[in-house]
Structure formats: C-alpha cells, structure tokens
C-alpha cells in the first residue's frame, strides 16, 4: 500500500484529466497508461481464422460473455469497462473495420449458467469472436472445479461448432480476498480447456498480479472511486485487443504459408502450466 503511492496518484490524476478531455475514452487515453506486462503473459497461442476473415471483410462482431467483473458499475461504467475499451482499441488498430463489441455481462453467473446462454448470445450478437470471462462466481460458490471445467469445455465446443473464435478470460487478481477465495483449481481447469480446445486465453489473473507486484496499480487500496478500476479495465481492453490482433495475424500468416502446413501456434508451456498449478493448490 505504501508502494508507489505518489506515482499511482499522479497517474490517476493524469488519467482523470485525459478522460475529462475525451469523454469517449478511446485508446488515446489508454495509451498513456503503463499497461505493459512481461513477455509471454499476453500472447496468442492459437490462430483465430474467423477473426482474420472478419477483419479482411471489414466487419468484426464480438460478444463478451461474462459476470460482474466484465463491467463497471455506475453511470460511466458501461463506457469505461473493458469491453468498451476493447472495442475502441480494436477500431484504432484496424481502422476501416467496423468493430462492434456487445457485452453479455450478468452478475452471479457460474460457467454452467453462462453456457446455457450461449444460444442467446449467438442469436443476438451474431459474433465472430466470443470473449468468455468466468470462474470467480464458481470459486465463490465452491462449485467443483471439475464441473466448472466440463461446463467450460461444453461451451467452447458449442461456440467453435458455430464457427466462432473464442478467448477465455480467467479471474481477477484480488489481494484482499486472496485468502478467502480459492482460485487455483479453476485457473487450472481453464488453462486445460483452452489448451485442449486450442483456444487463446487471456490470463487476467497473471496480468493483474504482475501490475500489483510491480506497483503499476495498488490493487489492495480501499476506495469508492471508480478511477483505478477504470484504468485497470482500460489496460485490459487494450491488451485484449493486442491478443486478438495477434491471433488474427497468426491465422493470416498460416494461410499465407499455404494450407499444407497446420498452424503451429500452441505454446507447450500452457499445457505444463495447466497441470502445474494443480500441483500447487494450497
């Protein structure tokens, strides 16, 4: 808490001013944030051919399926949550492409409950890409990690069958509740499913933990202001956009290399980590 307080404060002031000058909160605001993460933390492991095709066709529809941590509360919450930032960042990086991100965030929903809504999401947003954020609710309720994994796996299979690229997003790192919510089993299962189904995952937990440890954000601060939350979401949106563009580029590169060679994007380290963390559950 003592760590980097002046820095963080000045950062937030700067951000607040930026946001005031550009109420839309585009990627311009996020550019001044130190969102960086160590190499390999946010990295596309698998190509995303559907996204690549949609970008080529200049129209990309995305759905964000998630729980409460995929949105910010309050009047400006909608625009400042990561789905909105993600849309802005994608548009900025691929000018000329009509990007639309539709959030399907509903609080207190477990992975199984979200899985049941996939039909609704597919029919409603007609997405090319679904970002599926889940895990926290399951961990709080103590749902069996295995059951969680099964629901996740079923959902991903269904999305892939519908011709949709998927990004799985795991839990937030939350220092205050770290000793109260046992996340390990769920983190493991999600990594495992991502690998088994060859879908990319956005390791929000590792990203936020890295920010907390390096002092970029003081995540144990108690506050009722939304500023830090908004900055965190802005960074998440930006990194998520980077991941998706990378995935699309992998697909484009693979296509350019010719159809003969299957794209080899899998990082074996993911598999190791998916099992590895099981070994270290407390």
């Amino acid at each position: 808490m003592m760590r980097a307080v002046p820095f963080a404060t000045s950062l937030m002031l700067a951000l607040a001013m930026l946001l005031a000058s550009s109420p839309v909160g585009t990627a311009v605001a996020a550019d001044d944030l130190p969102c960086e993460v160590p190499d390999g933390v946010v990295q596309a492991a698998f190509p995303m051919p559907h996204v690549a095709a949609a970008i080529a066709a200049k129209k990309l529809d995305v759905a964000v399926l998630g729980s409460a941590s995929s949105a910010l509360v309050g009047p400006t919450g909608m625009a400042r949550g990561y789905p909105g930032r993600f849309e802005a960042a994608l548009s900025a990086q691929r000018p000329g492409v009509a990007v639309r991100v539709v959030p399907y965030a509903k609080s207190r929903q477990s992975a199984a409950e979200m899985e049941a809504r996939i039909g609704e999401v597919l029919a409603g947003a007609k997405p090319t890409l679904v970002v599926w954020q889940t895990g926290t609710v399951d961990a709080i309720r103590g749902i069996d990690p295995e059951e969680f994994g099964t629901a996740l796996d079923r959902g991903v299979e269904r999305l892939q069958a519908a011709g949709v690229d998927v990004v799985l997003m795991n839990m937030q790192f939350s220092p205050r509740t770290e000793s109260m919510i046992a996340l390990d089993g769920y983190l493991d299962r999600m990594r495992f499913v991502a690998l088994q189904r060859s879908v990319n995952s956005f390791d929000r937990f590792a990203v936020m933990k890295g920010w907390h440890e390096s002092g970029v954000f003081d995540l144990s601060a108690a506050t009722n202001k939304i500023d830090m939350a908004a900055s965190v979401h802005a960074c998440i949106g930006r990194l998520l956009a980077r991941l998706v563009i990378e995935g699309a580029d992998l697909a484009t590169a693979a296509a350019a290399e010719g159809a003969g060679k299957p794209p080899d994007g899998a990082r074996p380290s993911d598999l190791a980590r998916s099992g590895g963390q099981s070994g270290v559950r407390k």
């Binding site: 941590s69 509360v73 609080s107 937030q172 919510i181 108690a222 830090m228």
Partner: peptide, 12 residues
C-alpha cells in the same frame, strides 16, 4: 474494504 473493481469478489 470497498473498491468498484472488485464488486464481484465481494460476493464471497
């Protein structure tokens, strides 16, 4: 503890 970032975690 209060922080809008962790509205979801408060469910615990």
């Amino acid at each position: 503890f209060e922080n809008p970032l962790y509205a979801e975690e408060m469910g615990v």
